[in-house]
């Protein structure tokens, strides 16, 4: 009936709305994003059970525990994953864990450096001193995806003979007394796709029974529910919303909490557009029947 010649003004309008030019939708998304980024208010955030699981697991880490923190994303997806990365790193370093960072993505190591620099400076302001090579290390990038993960199960030092700045890992104080997943207290991955959380579950968690949590983009998060239910993952964060939930629990509202205003507004806009589109189509069908 949409192809029929519209007769009334109402019909013309509805026909136009049903086939709305996407540039109008793009404009509405852009305008709402800008407006809600400027507004200063915070919506109440309700943490999901998955985010609660993640928070509890990370906060069970004791000073001196070895945590393997794999940063498997590049600059393109930083908008979604950087807030997760930052708030988790802050928690780990504040708790005094030995944070061992590495990446399966070639453009991951600069992001790891950026995270360490920010958090170490923040903690220094609070009077907490964290030293490179003693409390934290950036092992850099390792190619090979699944093979690289499996290789970590055998030996971290052999997989990464040097750290990102070229120092031999075997001589670093942080690397003493442990070498594989049998001695790792917690495995965390922040990832955008393949290789990422699913590959770590298959190659590291299920093989070595290491406790694991993950942070992923919103698109990937539906894939992690089966692993959460089966107990492979103790918790996970999905996209910016996940980071906001974590910030809420850690009581450190930041970029993700702020981003929730924009995300809420855009979700509401999409839902309204979808509902109105359906209403318009339904009305046109009714008019055609008459």
């Amino acid at each position: 009936m949409i192809n029929q010649e519209p007769t009334s003004r109402m019909q013309k309008f509805l026909t136009m709305f049903v086939a709305l030019d996407r540039r109008w939708i793009f404009s509405a998304v852009a305008i709402l994003t800008v407006i809600f980024m400027m507004l200063d208010f915070n919506l109440p955030i309700q943490p999901s059970p998955q985010a609660e699981g993640m928070y509890k697991t990370i906060n069970s880490v004791q000073p001196g525990d070895v945590v393997h923190f794999s940063i498997d994303y590049g600059p393109s997806s930083a908008a979604e994953l950087w807030p997760q990365h930052l708030c988790i790193l802050r928690d780990l370093m504040r708790r005094g864990a030995r944070v061992v960072c590495s990446s399966l993505w070639a453009d991951g190591p600069p992001t790891i450096e950026k995270g360490f620099n920010i958090v170490v400076a923040e903690l220094a302001e609070e009077g907490i001193k964290r030293e490179r090579g003693v409390d934290y290390v950036n092992l850099g990038f390792k190619a090979g995806d699944r093979v690289a993960i499996a290789s970590l199960g055998a030996s971290f030092k052999r997989t990464f003979p040097t750290d990102y700045s070229g120092r031999p890992t075997a001589s670093l104080p942080i690397m003493q007394g442990w070498d594989n997943y049998n001695d790792v207290k917690l495995l965390i991955t922040i990832g955008v796709g393949d290789p990422g959380a699913v590959e770590y579950v298959q190659q590291a968690q299920s093989r070595y029974r290491v406790t694991m949590v993950a942070g992923v983009t919103a698109v990937i998060s539906p894939q992690l529910y089966p692993y959460y239910q089966s107990g492979n993952l103790q918790g996970f964060l999905g996209g910016l919303a996940g980071a906001a939930e974590y910030e809420k629990m850690a009581n450190t509202p930041g970029r993700a909490t702020k981003g929730m205003n924009v995300q809420s507004a855009i979700h509401v806009l999409i839902v309204l557009l979808v509902l109105l589109g359906n209403l318009a189509q339904f009305s046109l069908r009714m008019m055609a029947r008459r």
Partner: peptide, 9 residues
């Protein structure tokens, strides 16, 4: 879509 963001709460 609505339940996933704070506005749903």
């Amino acid at each position: 879509m609505i339940g996933r963001v704070p506005v749903g709460g």
